[in-house]
Each structure stands twice: as structure tokens, then as C-alpha cells.
Design a binder for these strands. Structure first.
Lengths: 143, 143
DNA sequence: ATGCCTGCAAAGCTTTTGCAGATGC
DNA sequence: GCATCTGCAAAAGCTTTGCAGGCAT
């Protein structure tokens, strides 16, 4: 029940917020930009302004309902915060994004930070590579 | 000799390019935004436009003379590319940036990527935390 | 002399903000 | 009814681009 998440966050339950949550939930696993969400709303003939999308996403981020990522440059993308932390690997050819979690990496990060005199609060790890998928343009190029 | 680096990159040796390289070299280890560099140039009474700073930095990045980072959001920062790869840890209170390299993390990244079917090309790891330095505002706050 | 560089100003893009009207509670 | 929320439009960053003149080679 999405409305409860909103109420818990101290946000009024409004149509724009529900719709945006729905779109994020419907694209489970995908990473959407504000513009992506705005266009998805237009397709549903919802009359919601881009400014509202940005405002709502910022509020959601503050309420820990979504996570914001800066993958390559320029535009930020958002995903529902499902609780469990993970990192990302992005294909430089097809843009596909996979998520992963490696305890070894996580542990060493804590060690490194501690060794440098930091109390680590969060981190951001993105691997960039080329995927070996059939559908990937890079793969096609190699044939 | 900076001019050789420029020539090797196929770039003409011009005053703006040399000055910008000098500023980056003089701030060895620091991370400067285009604006930072522009202001440093103004302080030296160099009449170089902000657009040129951006253009030169982009060329330098393409030539692998500098690296561009997107630490928090908004503005990009640049550092001289000294060859050896390293990652960053940023203090969320005082903005201090330390560099580090951990072979264990590097190795596991390769393993993870390979396991997901990716040929990893590069990566981006930034740890965010709070440093335990005397001078750090956060530390003062805790007293 | 030629083609690459530069400064300036203007445009581009993403994101934020001000304000008047609308809506949830 | 009151505070919060929204849409619109305008503004605010940061960065890029067009153009006419300038400089390195």
C-alpha cells in the first residue's frame, strides 16, 4: 500500500505522488530520470508538471523512499529504495544496468575508510564495462 | 615539461593551456572545478574566459591529461591524471578528499563484473564519511 | 598563410523557485 | 478552514556552442 509509505513520510497522499510511486514500482529494477517519469505520466494522460516530478522525487529521496544516482553525467536517475543496499554496473554500449552486492568489497571499504580516519556513512560504486549479451550493440559490432 | 604533454596530445601549445596545466599541477592532489581554475587565472591576472577553461579541460580529458569527477552533484572537478589509478573518500563535513587504492577491492570488482558477464573498462568508487580530524567541523560539533 | 584557438555572448540542459490557485485532511 | 501541494513560468546553475578575430607553427 503506497499511501501508507507517504503518510509515514509525513507527506500528504496526492495523485501526483501516488502516480510517481506507481511508475517507479512498475519499472522495478530500472532507473528512471525525472524526464522519463514525466513522459510516462504524459502517456497516462496525467496532467502533472515536470517541476512537480522534481519536487516529489526530492521529497521522496529525503524520506528515503527512493535513491538518486548520477550514472554518467548530466541527468540523475531514480530507483525505489527497497531497503537492501547494492551497487551498479553499467554497460557502456547498451546502457543496461545490473545491480550487485559483494560482501568482500563492502568489508574492505570499511577497513580502508577506518584506516584513513573516516567514519564511513555511505558509498557510491559504479563499474563501467561492456556486456557480453547477444543484444548488445558492442557485441554485434564485434561479429 | 608541460608543453610536450600538449604536443603529444596533438594540441597546440598556447598560454591558456599551459596556465591551466600549471594550476592543476600546482594544486597537486586537490580537485578543482572549472570555476576554481577560472578564479585562479583571474588572480594571476590572466585574461582567459570561462568557456576556454571548459573547452581546454574537455580536451585534456579526451587526451587523458586530466580526470573528471562528479563528487556530490552539480559541478564537476578535475585533477591531473598521474597515471596510477585511485579511488576517493570525501568528508561530508569538511569536504576534504583523500585518495586510496585497495588491491582487494580492485580484484573483487573484476571478479564481480566477470561473473555478471561484463568486461569491465573502468569504475568509479567514492566513499562518503566523516573524518576524525581536529579541524573538521563535525568533530567540533561533537565536543 | 593556414588552420587551430580564444573571448565573448548567447544558447542549452537539467534542476530549482515564486506565486496564485487547487486540494487533502 | 488551513496548511500543504501543484502547475506554470521564470530563474538559476553548470556547461556548450557560434562566431569573428588572434595566434602558433
Amino acid at each position: 500500500m503506497e499511501s501508507n509509505d507517504l503518510r509515514k513520510a509525513g507527506l500528504k497522499v496526492t495523485l501526483p505522488r501516488i502516480k510517481i510511486l506507481e511508475i517507479l514500482a512498475g519499472n522495478h529494477g530500472r532507473h528512471l530520470s525525472a524526464e522519463d517519469i514525466y513522459r510516462a505520466l504524459l502517456e497516462q494522460s496525467e496532467d502533472i508538471g515536470l517541476a512537480t516530478v522534481y519536487r516529489v522525487l526530492t521529497q521522496f529521496e529525503a524520506a528515503a523512499l527512493v535513491k538518486r544516482h548520477h550514472f554518467e553525467g548530466g541527468t540523475a536517475v531514480f530507483e525505489l529504495n527497497e531497503g537492501e543496499h547494492h551497487d551498479h554496473i553499467v554497460c557502456m554500449d547498451c546502457g543496461r544496468v545490473e545491480e550487485f552486492l559483494d560482501c568482500g568489497i563492502e568489508r574492505r571499504q570499511l577497513d580502508v575508510a577506518s584506516g584513513l580516519g573516516f567514519d564511513i556513512e555511505e558509498h557510491n560504486l559504479i563499474l563501467y564495462g561492456r556486456c557480453r549479451r547477444e543484444a548488445c550493440p558492442h557485441r554485434r559490432k564485434r561479429i
